[in-house]
Design a protein around this nucleic acid. Structure first.
Length: 667
DNA sequence: ATAGGGTTAG
């Protein structure tokens, strides 16, 4: 959004000077208003200064000051302010706003207090909203209260703009109750008042209160929604109820003046609620309507690409970012790294990281997670150390990244080391995510009982992640007793999640307890739980192919199965034997006519082998945990065909190369 | 001549 605007205004200036025609003062000032590029503005400024009487016109000076602020140069605005002989209240108002708009609230408030004390200029109804905004952005409650006092004395507290600014000031400094009473006592309210109070609740974590008001606007025929309403409700919409998401979509569809912000907000609602396909579909719709995405749009869409492993779209977005010269931009670069990592492209993630001009804790966390997810724990740890050396303090999430890296690579000692470090050296209180990593680490190292003790001693209530990690460990180490306990908790926490029933039946199957396997099966049936069908996705030449078990719908089905038969022969030579317990991966009957050979992972691998270049990496994404038989097969195939195969299952990445997997056969 | 709310990353 920024760059096209910049180009247009720059062209305006070029045309202006190249035309050689006489340009009216009015036209000149109009270009000052439109100008968003500092270098162009300086040319315009020079032109204004050379004209009489325009050069001494306060209106022209005001426009120039405003333009300097919009170009991100409050110092330029200040220069004009200082040079001007006329110093009325408008000059102060514009100068104060220039500071606020450029994040310099301190300078804004300084000038605000000077204007009366030193210059004897009295603030007016334009000044107070700006001064209050300076208090909001610096969370300066004391200053805000003081201004509230002056405003009340002057009777300006009934002013709409002042009231709206007061709401934000109180909410942002942690006083939602005061914000609400300002809102309730306002004689007149417009949509901005509603947005301000909704945003106040929403940003303070009072999601339900925010939603209440959001619904209320719709029912009352009062002010109509605008894009700002959607943006205001956004922070209250993570883990939102389906009904609320649908309501927001309905609002999005019906607001007038749908603009970039409303599109961005709606896309973000989907992206933040694990609805990546909806986010991408809306983005595609936005493109069709020829609305130019900006940095904010891209930062919301990239994570959705990562969630879906939509690499070709992700790459297109990267190209767009480069074409529009949006980099360097910390947020975008962080989002890009994450997208590449989640699409299984570690080298690309690394490249983005290496090219960054500045890195914050989010950047480091993203690259540490990237290495961790790909089973490269040692390198992840080394990056974590580099981050500390560079003076960046790890936070909660940074510790999640390093701990999960340890857990994915089975580095128990290192995990313990960092778990202690976060508590002792950084005084961070471990959260469920950190505990989950530790449970996973202990479980992986075979200490299932110890992991269970750890869970029992946790000061917080274990959640699905924790019991899921424990149940996973029980499957690998065939621990029946702890497995039953974990499964029991999981069935109560997430009764509809079929994956855990499958894990439990795997444990029974390994112990040869076939009766219990069928008990689990009938339990699922009685609860009406369907095993989610395994699906593997592979992208070839920018096209996405879905494979299901026993799939014969692909036009190249014959070749795919022929490739599988050929591979089976070679695999047998290498000692492969189909193992029966893996067949129980499928609790349902569906597998009867199918064969292990027809599992979706294998179909996708075979298809990728016959339809992509010889040395290219194969990337597959699937919705379940990889089954043991497919895992064994993938290892062998990577060796037989000399291909690197990266499979992202619902739990982690597996990178197969030369007959081994990066997960170390634990997942 | 000037004002208030609101969107993005691990």
């Amino acid at each position: 959004m920024k760059s096209p605007l910049r180009r247009i205004s720059f062209n305006v200036v070029l045309r202006l000077f190249a035309s050689g025609r006489e340009i009216s003062d009015e036209a000149l000032l109009r270009s000052v208003d439109q100008c968003r590029s500092l270098s162009a503005l300086q040319k315009l400024h020079f032109e204004v200064a050379s004209r009489r009487p325009l050069a001494s016109d306060p209106a022209a000076a005001i426009k120039l000051m405003r333009a300097y602020a919009l170009c991100g140069d409050p110092v330029g605005a200040r220069r004009l302010f200082d040079e001007s002989s006329e110093r009325n209240v408008v000059f102060f108002n514009v100068m104060i706003r220039s500071y606020v708009a450029n994040g310099r609230s301190h300078d804004a408030l300084f000038l605000f207090s000077d204007m009366v004390r030193l210059y004897g200029v009295r603030p007016d109804n334009y000044t107070y909203p700006c001064a209050l905004k300076a208090c909001s952005s610096s969370e300066n409650l004391a200053g805000g209260i003081q201004i509230h006092g002056s405003v009340t004395k002057l009777g300006l507290d009934s002013n709409l703009f002042v009231g709206n600014a007061l709401i934000t000031m109180y909410a942002r400094s942690g006083n939602c109750l005061d914000a609400r009473s300002v809102f309730d006592e306002m004689p007149h309210r417009d949509i901005v008042s509603w947005n301000a109070i909704i945003a106040g609740y929403s940003q303070s974590g009072l999601a339900e209160k925010a939603m209440e008001l959001f619904r209320e606007i719709r029912q009352s025929r009062r002010p109509r929604f605008d894009a700002g309403t959607m943006a205001s409700i956004l922070p209250a919409m993570s883990n939102a109820k389906q009904a609320d998401i649908e309501l927001t979509r309905a609002v999005f569809d019906e607001i007038r003046g749908r603009n970039l912000i409303s599109w961005n907000a709606m896309i973000a609602v989907y992206a933040n609620n694990s609805l990546p396909s909806e986010a991408l579909n809306l983005f595609i719709k936005m493109e069709k309507e020829e609305i130019e995405p900006d940095v904010v749009t891209l930062a919301s869409v990239l994570p959705a690409c990562g969630d879906l492993s939509a690499l070709s779209l992700g790459k297109k977005l990267h190209e767009h970012i480069n074409k529009k010269q949006m980099l360097p931009n910390l947020i975008l670069e962080n989002a890009l790294m994450d997208m590449y990592a989640n699409c299984g492209c570690l080298p690309e993630a690394k490249e983005v990281f290496s090219n960054m001009k500045g890195r914050d804790v989010v950047s480091w966390t993203a690259i540490i997670s990237a290495y961790g997810m790909h089973g490269r724990g040692r390198e992840a740890i080394s990056l974590f150390e580099q981050m500390k050396d560079s003076g960046i303090k790890p936070d909660h999430i940074a510790f999640v990244s390093v701990l999960s890296a340890c857990s994915y690579s089975g580095l128990l000692d290192d995990g313990n080391h960092y778990f202690d470090m976060m508590k002792e050296r950084y005084q961070l209180v471990p959260r469920l995510e950190h505990y989950a990593c530790m449970v996973d680490l202990l479980g992986r190292s075979g200490q299932v009982e110890k992991a269970y003790d750890f869970v029992k001693k946790m000061p917080v209530e274990p959640n699905e992640r924790i019991w899921g990690a424990l149940l996973g460990a029980c499957r690998v180490h065939s621990n029946m007793s702890v497995g039953l306990i974990s499964a029991d908790h999981l069935f109560r926490l997430v009764p509809k999640q079929s994956g855990y029933y499958v894990l439990l039946s795997n444990i029974y199957a390994r112990a040869g307890r076939w009766k219990d396997v069928s008990v689990v099966r009938s339990l699922m049936a009685s609860k009406g739980i369907k095993k989610s069908p395994g699906c593997s996705i592979v992208e070839i030449g920018g096209k996405v192919y879905n494979f299901y078990i026993g799939d014969r719908s692909h036009p190249r089905t014959k070749e795919i199965y022929a490739e599988l038969e050929a591979l089976l022969g070679k695999m047998k030579e290498a000692g492969y034997r189909a193992e029966t317990d893996a067949a129980l991966h499928d609790v349902e009957e569906e597998d009867k006519e199918g064969h292990l050979l027809a599992h979706s992972e294998k179909l996708a691998i075979a298809f990728a082998l016959i339809s992509s270049g010889e040395k290219t990496q194969i990337r597959i994404t699937m919705n379940l945990r990889m089954c043991g038989d497919c895992h064994r097969a993938a290892k062998l195939i990577s060796e037989i065909r000399g291909r690197e195969i990266v499979i992202k299952d619902c739990n982690r990445f597996h990178r197969f190369e030369g007959g081994v997997c990066s997960c170390g056969d634990y997942w």
